[in-house]
Amino acid sequence: MASDEGFSDFFYPAADGLKLHARIYGEANTVGWPVICLPGLTRNARDFHELALHLSSKVDIPRKVIAFDYRGRGQSDYDPDIGHYNVGVEAGDVLAGMAALGVEQAAFVGTSRGGLIIHVLGALKPTVLKAIVLNDIGPVIEAEGLAHIRSYLDRAPKPKMFAEAADAQRRVHGVDFPALTDIDWARMVRAICRETEAGWVPDFDPALADTLAGIDFGKPLPDLWPQFDGLATVPLLAIRGANSKLLSVATFEEMGRRHPRMESATVEGQGHAPFLETGDLPGKIAAFLDRAEREVISK
């Protein structure tokens, strides 16, 4: 049963027995493709709350929306083996969650790491993908952007008060996100942090930072062009933050040249990764999903 906040909590076991969590919005909605939302490296299902409410209750064709917490994030169990914090295992966890919910196919929205997981799903089980929204992620990750993420994780602040937490996020990310308002920063803190006796702390396993420790940012990172090319038959909306350090303009443009069904949107005043609940993004995403589904039906 949905809570007063518009969603219900769903728990399911991973293949190795770890208890994992997802939020379900619009559980009774059966018309239209369901939408699966996959967050970034250290983010969680709360990242998609406003977008999920929009897609599940504020559009002409409300959809069921499922937002996942990967292992080690949000309400999912932490994994004692940090080697399992990788996109391959996490893609398997998403498939396990879909199976537990009886969802065979869906449209996918992937922010950052979530987009990488979509690339893996396209290789593992391409039939699950009906449409794709990639939020500031592509087959090439810029080392500068990933180094910035690692640097932030290594020195993440531990504020005592909520206002301090919002100010801390603004200090770190404000240069790349001049378009955000005080309300946006406050919403960000509530999405990525949890309140404890020690203050507002990031809502993920601290060991996640260790998974980036061995990366040599002086060398080019492996790309996923073959996996991206494998998505060529799936309708795609690619979103890029104009100030992104992770997804370059060159990669963004090359994605458009390679993918015959790609639509694109650049979000001014935001970096990595754009807040999908801001501006006209909810409407753009909803309209894209509607177009993609109508195209399939009309064939």
Rank of each mutant, 00 (worst) to 15 (best):
T211N: 07
R194E: 14
S298T: 09
A242S: 07
A286N: 02
V296Y: 01
V87N: 11
D216A: 09
D184V: 09
K160N: 12
G17V: 05
D229I: 06
M1Y: 08
P34H: 01
L247E: 04
L237P: 00
P226D: 03
S298D: 12
A250Q: 13
G17I: 04
I132F: 00
D182L: 09
V175F: 07
G241W: 05
A123P: 04
I117Y: 02
G230A: 14
L153R: 05
K130E: 11
I141C: 03
G92C: 08
G110T: 04
V296L: 07
A163D: 15
S56Y: 06
Q270G: 00
V87L: 06
Y152V: 14
I192Y: 08
I117D: 02
M1P: 13
E295R: 10
A45C: 11
D4S: 14
E197R: 12
D81S: 08
E295H: 13
V103G: 06
D205G: 12
G122V: 01
V109D: 01
A156L: 14
F7N: 05
G74L: 00
L281V: 06
H173D: 12
E195D: 11
L236F: 02
L121E: 03
A156G: 05
P157I: 02
C193Y: 14
A292T: 08
V175Q: 14
C37W: 07
Q227G: 00
E263S: 09
P159I: 02
M98S: 02
D16M: 14
G174K: 09
L236N: 01
Y152Q: 09
S8K: 11
M161I: 10
T233G: 05
D203N: 13
I192Q: 10
S76T: 09
L276D: 01
R23P: 00
H148Q: 13
L134A: 04
A99P: 02
A163V: 11
G214S: 12
V94Q: 07
F48E: 00
G269V: 10
P126L: 01
L212W: 04
R43L: 02
M262Y: 09
R171L: 07
Y25G: 03
D167V: 07
K125G: 03
V35C: 01
L281M: 12
D77V: 00
M262G: 04
T181Y: 10
H84G: 15
A238E: 04
R171Q: 13
V89H: 11
L276M: 15
D229W: 05
R73G: 07
F11T: 04
E295M: 06
D205F: 03
I36A: 00
V296A: 15
I192N: 08
R257H: 05
F275S: 10
G241D: 03
